[in-house]
Each structure stands twice: as C-alpha cells, then as structure tokens.
Simulated assay, not measured.
Amino acid sequence: MSIPPRSPHLETICQQAIAGYTLKTGDSPVDTAKFERLLLSMIAASEKFLGKAVSARIFSAGMRSVVISVVGEHAERGSGAPATVVVKHFRRKDSATNSGGFGYLREKHGLSSLNSLVKSSYSQLLGWDDDARFLILEYVLGTHLSEFLSVSSLSENGNAGQDASAHIAEGLDLWSNFWATQLNSTRQQTVQETFQRSLVTADARARYPGRMTSPQLAFKGLEKFVADSGHSANNAYHRELEAQLSSIIFPDPAHSVLSSADFSPQNMLVSQSQRGTEVRGIDAEGTAIHHWALPVAEILLGFPSHPESRFEKLSTTASWHDACNTFYQQVYRGATYQTAADDPCVQAAVMTIRCTLIEQTGMLSPFNRVL
C-alpha cells in the first residue's frame, strides 16, 4: 500500500476522524501510527472520485475491515463528482486473491453482479485498488435528499399497539419485496455464471467458486449438535442431517440463487423520494450462490444469523407467520406445501443456520424456536 505524500490538510482530516470515533467491541486500536497511515491512504484514495476531501468519518475499525466515509469539497459537486463516498479496506493480505470467505473479492465482484440482477439495488462500486485492498463505494445516504430508515428500525419499533403493528407489516413487506425481486430476477442464471467466472479469474485456487462462504462451519456445528443429542458420529441420524446441510450448501442448479447472502434488515436502507419508497442493500461481503430456502429460513426464525438484530419474539406472531408464508410463495413458485415450515427444503435450511451458529457461538441452542 502506497503512502500518500505528506499533506497537512489530509492529516488534519485524519486526526479529526480518529478523535471523533468511539471504539466498539472487537475493534482494533485507531490511535496508532499504523492506523493513521492507513486512514491517510484511504482518504487520499477517495480524492480520485471526490476532488479535494474536506472531512472523513470512521464507521468501523474491525478486525476484518475498516470502513470510512469521505465528504468532498462542495465545489466538486457541480462537476458531476459524488458528494460523498465510502472507502472500505480489507485487512487480510490475501483478500485480493482468496475468495473463500467474506471479504474483498466477494464484495468487489458481488456488487456489480447484484446490480446486474436488479438495477441500483445495491450501492455502486466506483473503484478499487487490489494492492491496497480498497473498494470505493457509492455512499447511499448521499444520493438521496429524503430520510433513510433501516428496515430493522421499523420492525424493532413494533412491539405494541396498532401503529407498531403497521410498522412491522411495512418492514416485512419491504424486506420481502426486495428479496423476492432479487431471487426471482430473470437474469439469475446468467449473472451466477458471470460471478463464478470473475472469482475463478481472481482466485484460481477456489474450491467452490461463488458458493457459500466457509461451508465447513455448518458441518463442524453439526458434529457438536449430534454429539449433544446423544448420537454417535457418522451414524444414520448424523448422515441424514449431513445430507440436509449438503443440499443447502451445495444446492442443485434448479434451487440455486445468487444474492448478497446477508439477509439482515440492518443492511437494507429505505428512502422516501418522489419515486416512492426505495430499498437498497449496502453490504455484499458474503455474496454467494446458495439455496433459495436460506432467506425463507432466516425470516421464519427472526433473522437469527444476526444476533444484534434478532426478532425472535416477533417471529412467533401470526402476522409474522403470514408474511413469511407469503414470501415463501413469492420465492418458490412451485411450492406444494401450505406453509414454509412444512417444506423439507426450509427445514434443511433451518438446520444449516442452526449448525453454523453452533460453531460460531459455541451455543448448542443458538435460538429458542426450532422447527
């Protein structure tokens, strides 16, 4: 990663951004010389798109990535340059050559693929630097003049009263329509093939190019689940569940869809504009080809893959069940089961999510409601 020439202007912006950031759990320190050099490079990279930078804000400084926004000089806005961009740096040094897990290559090639499925459904990729592992992204909030709301906020406010119920219904409807449009895109097969070719070109060693990230997590979690259930490893019960997981992680082409594989309402932004209500996704680090049943299982269980935004209590209500079943019918037009919970594919997806969380969290009961 090249270090930009010394610039008192950029150094001031950098120091102000560091001073304004509050560390979160799991963050790396931001008050080191190494981080300051990184931040300077990220701000300098943004100026290729913004013109002169005037301010920066650190969104996150996690172990996997650093995300900032940079605002450009007001005079540049009239020239067609964006007012604000997001710059994302991936810490792993092999991020630009290893597509196995969440990260740089998945997001770089995923954003163009997802926006090819449905135009402008995700933030646009403006530029990249493979050596520095930087992605320059459209700042979604900066492209609209209206208020943005997180879909998760709509749902979290819905814990009592008629108004709250309306918010829940609106949030679920927005979530369902967004994902149904993505998964039902007529370009699915073509875009899947393009996405896989892009990853193979970038990562010739990829064992399962474009498939779900870190697939072994679920199988490791299954071993713990089976042992806790009192069954011996590799018996008939274990093999049956293993086959269920395999059907979801390595689905047949007829059941395969491409998505960001991040179904959390927290990563979907809602805007009100003259064109009406719009929903856009903002995270594509885990873009993958997966089974259509995964998002159905996620909404059925109240998005358990994202503990910080879980809606487990709401997911037991009749209105949530109705929304889930409607989404199931939207996504799987050939459904022969009355409810999503009755479909063996959805049941297998639930088990896949459960086993993945067992391995990630160490909890044998990562969520209380199990089919």
Rank of each mutant, 00 (worst) to 15 (best):
Q216V: 15
L183T: 02
T181D: 00
T194Y: 01
K220P: 05
T201G: 03
W175Q: 01
S165M: 13
S247K: 03
D252Y: 03
G230F: 05
H167R: 12
T186F: 03
A169V: 10
E170Y: 02
S176D: 04
R211C: 07
E242C: 11
V191H: 02
L222H: 03
I249N: 01
P209R: 03
Q182R: 05
R239K: 12
H231G: 00
L241D: 04
P253V: 09
Q192T: 04
E240M: 13
S176R: 12
F250P: 06
R205P: 00
L183V: 15
S198C: 12
E242M: 13
I168F: 01
F219L: 15
Q244I: 00
Y237S: 10
G171E: 00
T186Q: 06
A169H: 03
W179C: 06
G221D: 08
F219W: 08
D173P: 02
S247F: 07
N177S: 13
T194E: 09
Y237Q: 13
I248G: 00
N235M: 06
F219H: 15
P253S: 10
K220R: 14
Q196V: 10
R211Q: 11
S229G: 09
K224F: 01
A169R: 09
Q189A: 14
S176Q: 08
S165G: 12
D173Y: 02
L245P: 12
D252H: 09
R239D: 13
F219K: 08
D173A: 09
Y208I: 14
D203H: 04
Y237E: 14
G221V: 09
S165T: 15
A202V: 09
A236H: 08
R207A: 12
H167K: 14
Y237M: 10
A166F: 10
V191I: 15
W179H: 13
L172C: 05
E240K: 11
T190M: 06
R211G: 11
A206G: 06
S214A: 15
T181V: 06
G171C: 03
R197C: 11
L245K: 06
N177C: 07
L217W: 08
A243G: 10
G210E: 02
R205E: 09
D228H: 12
E240Y: 12
F178P: 04
S232Q: 13
N234V: 11
Q182T: 09
N235Q: 15
P215Q: 05
P215N: 05
S198E: 14
R207Q: 11
L199S: 08
D203R: 05
A227H: 07
I249D: 03
F195L: 08
F219A: 04
R211N: 06
R211D: 07
L241G: 04
T186I: 07
I168T: 04
Q188A: 02
H167I: 02
A202Q: 05
L172D: 00
T194G: 07
L241E: 02
S176C: 13
R187I: 01
R205F: 09
S232I: 14
V191R: 03
L241S: 00
I168D: 05
D173C: 08
S165V: 07
R205D: 11
Y237R: 10
F250T: 06
E240S: 13
D252K: 11
E170A: 14
Q189H: 10
S165F: 05
D163M: 12
M212F: 05
L217P: 03
A180F: 00
